[in-house]
């Protein structure tokens, strides 16, 4: 399943502009807020679910090669974070639901 398909099926918000990475094929997911953990644990092509919105999430998403970042619980995301993500081609999605509910949505889609 591609990032754009998940976006269409869940109704999550797309924070970044239309990027080529919306075509990324997703392979499973990863959940953590400590970016040191994400750097060590996240695998390429996973959906990464987090509450962290500091602009470093863009660098960590690039580094790990995750398919997209899903910011949960409707957390506020600064313009600097969105701008960096757009520049680096990282897709930022946002779910209004808490992490647990958001992950359940992804699992229900077969991820």
């Amino acid at each position: 399943m591609k990032v754009k398909d998940v976006l269409a099926a869940t109704g999550w918000e797309l924070l970044t502009p239309t990027l080529p990475a919306l075509e990324n094929e997703i392979q499973g997911g990863y959940v953590a807020d400590l970016l040191s953990c994400v750097m060590a644990g996240a695998q390429p092509d996973q959906l990464w679910f987090t509450l962290q919105t500091h602009s470093n999430i863009v660098a960590v998403a690039s580094l790990t090669g995750v398919a997209a970042v899903v910011i949960c619980e409707g957390a506020a995301v600064g313009a600097d974070t969105v701008q960096k993500a757009a520049e680096q081609g990282v897709v930022l999605l946002r779910s209004a639901a808490p992490v647990y509910e958001t992950v359940k949505q992804a699992i229900a889609l077969g991820l």
């Binding site: 807020d33 400590l34 970016l35 040191s36 953990c37 994400v38 750097m39 962290q52 500091h54 602009s55 470093n56 660098a59 960590v60 580094l63």
Partner: peptide, 14 residues
């Protein structure tokens, strides 16, 4: 520090 330390929380030096 992993918890409450900049590199633990943010992974990289911004």
């Amino acid at each position: 520090r992993r918890v409450k330390g900049l590199l633990g929380v943010l992974g990289l030096w911004p």
